[in-house]
Design a protein around this nucleic acid. Structure first.
Length: 116
DNA sequence: TTCCTGACTCCAG
DNA sequence: CCTGGAGCCAGGA
C-alpha cells in the first residue's frame, strides 16, 4: 500500500508550512531572523531550510512577508530574490523600517522573536 | 535509492 | 577588517 495523502487530514504538508506560519506572525514594522525561526520550529541549526522555504513563499497563500526575514546580522540576504533587488528594501521602508547598506537599522530593536 | 543544492550560522586564519 | 570551510536538514532529479 503506497502512502497516500488524505485530503481530510489537516497535517502540515511540510516543514515549509511551519515556516510560513511563523513568518506570517511577524508584526508589521518588525523583522525576524532565519535562525530564530528555525529554532522555533524545533530545527535549530537548519536556518538554511528557513531561507529555502522562503524561496517558495511567494507560491503559497496567503502571501508570506518574507521581506521581514533577514539573517542574524539584519542584512537583507534575500533581497535579490525580490524581483529587482530593492523591492525588499522598499517594502521594509514602507513599514517604517530603515534600511541602510542592505542592513536593517536598529535591527536589534526591531527584532521580533517568534513565539511571543 | 543516491547525489546535489541552498534567502544561514559558526569558527578559524 | 575580510575570506574560507564545515555543519546543518529537507526536497528535487
Amino acid at each position: 500500500m503506497k502512502k497516500q495523502k488524505d485530503p481530510f487530514q489537516p497535517v502540515p504538508s511540510s516543514f515549509f508550512d511551519k515556516v510560513f506560519e511563523v513568518v506570517r506572525q511577524i508584526p508589521k514594522g518588525r523583522v525576524s531572523s532565519y535562525g530564530a525561526i528555525a529554532e522555533t520550529l524545533g530545527s535549530a541549526g537548519s536556518s538554511r531550510m528557513v531561507g529555502w522555504a522562503m524561496n517558495a513563499s511567494h507560491l503559497v497563500v496567503p502571501p508570506v512577508p518574507a521581506h521581514r526575514v533577514v539573517n542574524r546580522n539584519g542584512m537583507l540576504t534575500g533581497k535579490h530574490f525580490f524581483g529587482t533587488g530593492k523591492e525588499m528594501q522598499e517594502l521594509l521602508e514602507q513599514e517604517g523600517i530603515e534600511v541602510k547598506d542592505d542592513k536593517v537599522v536598529r535591527f536589534k530593536e526591531l527584532f521580533w522573536h517568534p513565539g511571543v
